[in-house]
Write a protein that binds this DNA or RNA. Structure first.
Lengths: 212, 212
DNA sequence: ACCTGAACACCGTTCAAGT
DNA sequence: ACCTGAACACCGTTCAAGT
């Protein structure tokens, strides 16, 4: 039942050592981003990416062992930006209380996602299909780590026990609402931020009323 | 930027009139469900579905104009079950207050999604890729309609203005948390229900704290 | 009318030949 | 060493031939 994915199918075939080849990898990844944004997933094919990047299809496969590896690399790049933004935001925030600690993170996530919305949405779907590779999983864990640290710091204000589960759930909520807003074309960051904050705070502090 | 999808590419090519052909369509759709569940999206191809259903590939295409139409039909079937379950639950609920009105809906959604979890998750992704066809969109609107009715009835207890936006957001939250739990293999309905309820109630009743 | 499956087109991927 | 692109394999889809 588990979808098996050979690790190597998603990694770079070799690490580019020279500046020229590093640049080539970057060019291919950015070409992939452009194709994904302009033609969507249906129009995304390796030959188109190679052509857009101005390299032969063979050269593309010299670095990327599969189409999925190409998407994984693109996904890595975008997620690294997200993690960097969130970690940096967290470091800078004074964070006197839970609400003001969470809000900047929500904002950072919204900003990142809406910078290139079509790309972000397409990647969110694709990533789940790929049964994320190690690096992607690590990145999600990195973000979850920041959120867990934040929750730990404000532990007295939260009513949840499993901090990891909570962190993953909160990330899922934020992503779902951001993607939904983007897909409806209603992108009004302040309102979106408020809706995410309410759901997140409800999750963290609400009374469960578990009994039926 | 908008992905154009010809309506006809997602609909049945013709409505089966005889019992035999209706049965054939049903057999094909169930074969599609089985293939999707057992081999995943990567292993899902039309030839495999036709073979599993015991019909020729040509016969499959006599009813389904494309692979996407096949997924759309499967998606329709599952969503109709979901809508029926939710509408029925709503009709039966006494609903003295917001919390006890929402809880049965959350339960119905969890039950449906976890009945065939691999299928439900695969469909959630695919549906978004397809830029949902009319029927799918209508189905989502149907569920949103039920949720909006519920919110309208308890309007005094909710702090949101845009009931449609709220309904769509709440559905997105529930789906994200259910899919996440299923993908992690942590499926413990009572806990999941509580987490969804807290997020949903926070969204509906929480103070926004909109000012930065 | 409906069914069949060989055949076509497209795209992911490889590899022999070239530099 | 690295690049090229023709060629192969797989799969979505069609359509001429059969019943």
């Amino acid at each position: 039942m588990a979808t098996r994915v050979a690790r190597t199918r998603l990694r770079l075939r070799k690490i580019p050592r020279q500046q020229r080849s590093a640049h080539m990898v970057e060019t291919i990844v950015e070409a992939a981003a452009r194709i994904l944004e302009t033609r969507g997933l249906a129009g995304f094919n390796t030959n188109a990416v190679a052509e857009r990047a101005g390299v032969s299809i063979g050269s593309l496969y010299q670095y990327f062992p599969s189409k999925e590896a190409l998407i994984a690399a693109l996904s890595d790049r975008e997620r690294k930006r997200l993690v960097a933004g969130i970690a940096e935001t967290y470091r800078q925030a004074a964070a006197p209380d839970l609400v003001s600690a969470l809000r900047p993170l929500v904002r950072a996530a919204i900003r990142q996602q809406l910078a290139r919305p079509a790309l972000a949405r397409a990647l969110d779907f694709e990533e789940q299909r790929l049964v994320l590779n190690e690096a992607d999983r690590r990145t999600t864990q990195d973000i979850a780590g920041v959120v867990m640290a934040l929750l730990g710091r404000h532990r007295r204000q939260v009513a949840v026990h499993d901090l990891e589960e909570a962190a993953l759930d909160l990330i899922a909520i934020a992503r779902a609402l951001i993607d939904g807003a983007a897909s409806r074309g209603h992108v009004e960051p302040a309102g979106l931020e408020s809706r995410i904050m309410r759901a997140v705070l409800g999750y963290l502090t609400g009374r469960a009323n578990v009994a039926a």
